[in-house]
Design a protein around this nucleic acid. Sequence first.
DNA 1: TTCTCTTAGTGTAGCACTTACACCTTATAT
DNA 2: ATATAAGGTGTAAGTGCTACACTAAGAGAA
Lengths: 237, 237
Amino acid sequence: MEQELPIFESVFSVDCVIFGFEEGVLKVLLIERNEPPFKDWWALPGYLVEPNEGIDEAAQRILFKFTGLKDIFLEQLYTFGDVDRHPQGRLITIAYYAMMRLNGKKDLKPSSAFVKKAFWCPVSDVPQLAFDHTQIFEKSLQKIRRKISYSPIAFELLPEKFTLTQLQNLYEAILNKKLDKRNFRKKMLNYGILKELNEKQQGVSYRAAAYYKFDRRKYNKLFQKELSFMKEDDAGH
Amino acid sequence: MEQELPIFESVFSVDCVIFGFEEGVLKVLLIERNEPPFKDWWALPGYLVEPNEGIDEAAQRILFKFTGLKDIFLEQLYTFGDVDRHPQGRLITIAYYAMMRLNGKKDLKPSSAFVKKAFWCPVSDVPQLAFDHTQIFEKSLQKIRRKISYSPIAFELLPEKFTLTQLQNLYEAILNKKLDKRNFRKKMLNYGILKELNEKQQGVSYRAAAYYKFDRRKYNKLFQKELSFMKEDDAGH
DNA sequence: TTCTCTTAGTGTAGCACTTACACCTTATAT
DNA sequence: ATATAAGGTGTAAGTGCTACACTAAGAGAA
């Protein structure tokens, strides 16, 4: 004979750390809050998950409502649950992160009254954020620093066509250190996962660089999942 | 004028995946449940977090109550929150994992009526577990497979003094493939993080092996945090 | 048309690390 | 003494990393 079991009701939130890359600068997507607590503060886009909603789905939905961005591939980062992280009581939050192309997509259109605006902020200029969002942001920065050295996430941040110099600039921005041009190109081209296009830069006042694109087919064939991209050094000064 | 804000009440759980190594076999710590749902099933040790309890602390407390183990260094793995993962409603769970030495510590003493018994199960013999615990277990196995190649976690599983063969057996058990003896030893000794002791195996009926211990001081000096331990190959075995 | 400016693009030598591979040594048990 | 069982060792070939400096191409100015 089975006894009746209590029904649980969970309340928790998700927060999204979205990275973009533009004009050689790594940026993160922030919102300005329009409601207390932390009204008028800058924060990561995030909100409560609905009771019958998968967590990944919730992250997608909330990101869309708060910023207008859709179909971003979000991955779980970490769950933050300090007892006092939220002034309204014990509220844990599951942090997600993603990288995205910024070419053109400047039209951030929040459709939630909780958000005054959404905007891209250079990672080097991020101020103190609401709640524990500074901590969350920093943890995700560490995550992508590590991840870029074993996974081809860089290509998610660049436009379809890019030059090797742009690619190198992105690596340098994420790793926060200079890389050797010749070695970088040699290594990248050696992997055999870049396809050179019959197309060069237009309208530049110097020698035009060749465009490349990421060859995902070859990448998948070569490596089931990942490979070692950049030697992980001690520290990126 | 500030309006009154609602107070949140979170209900969620933690689950622990604890690995041990004994007689050349990698094992995971399981419990047999004594309460519904999934009464009599095998499961990972895990339970609800208290409202005013940090998540890490909760993991420690619950692990102790369910198994008698104390002062284990637990790290967060992932948060699982499928809407239907728990029959009593929406209950998300934060999974933790850890490695520990098994020398002697066979005295698993649950002090909770929820647990019939706690025991070590070879990872290759783990059956279908309660809830989504099979999924959680598999994700943590992947995690330590990756982690052993850039972090000295192996030494947490071995006794203080160990032979190089034991160390190699452990790597082979976790990575699930054979390694070359000479290369393995060369590499390990080259790191300079092992200290050879003036002591050999006793009571073996063959040539006694030298004991080593992990030199954490040298390790910390050499690498701020991590290093590349084992080349990560394509697939196991 | 020539000159200047700016970035694109290229090669090599030394070193360190990885891999593949087979035999002798040491201790115990019979 | 002999068999058994694991411990312990070296080398050569190949691969990948690092450091490093000049020429090539294109645009714009003079």
